[in-house]
Amino acid sequence: MIEIGTTLPEKVFYIDRALLKAYADASGDQNPIHQDEAFAISVGLPNVISHGMLTMALAGKYVSDWAGGSAQVREFSARFIKPVIVPASEKVDLTVVATVTEVDGNTVKLDISATSAGVKVLGMAKAVVVK
């Protein structure tokens, strides 16, 4: 029985430059702000930043794992409110947790929280899954 207000177990993902390169290749998004530190700084960023969609993909993995697989996810949305900053030779955290907000039969709505270095990086992150 899944109850409204239940908080699901937290999971920590780690993001480093190698993962950004792998995501760039897998997604086709080769924007240099996600790979080239000098370029990122030249356009006013503090350092290389993660693709927002990589952050969302990892949060999606968290949701899929809880729901029983990728096929269970019906809706998924998020706002990119702060960048995940990825310095060279570091692994930064992406800490994800979710709370059940609605239950209708086997359809469950989740509110998702995603932070990196204590900073909230996704806003209004929600998913609808069939559990």
């Binding site: 995501y23 897998a26 993909a57 999606g60 990728s70």
Partner: peptide, 29 residues
């Protein structure tokens, strides 16, 4: 191969279907 490489990045081992955000690779291009 596209589903496999996208899945590998996020640690998804079941690649029978694509991860939920996979379609962004099509939409963005």
């Amino acid at each position: 191969a596209q589903i496999d490489s996208f899945s590998a990045v996020i640690g998804e081992t079941n690649t029978e279907v694509a991860p939920p955000t996979f379609s962004i690779r099509i939409s963005l291009s």
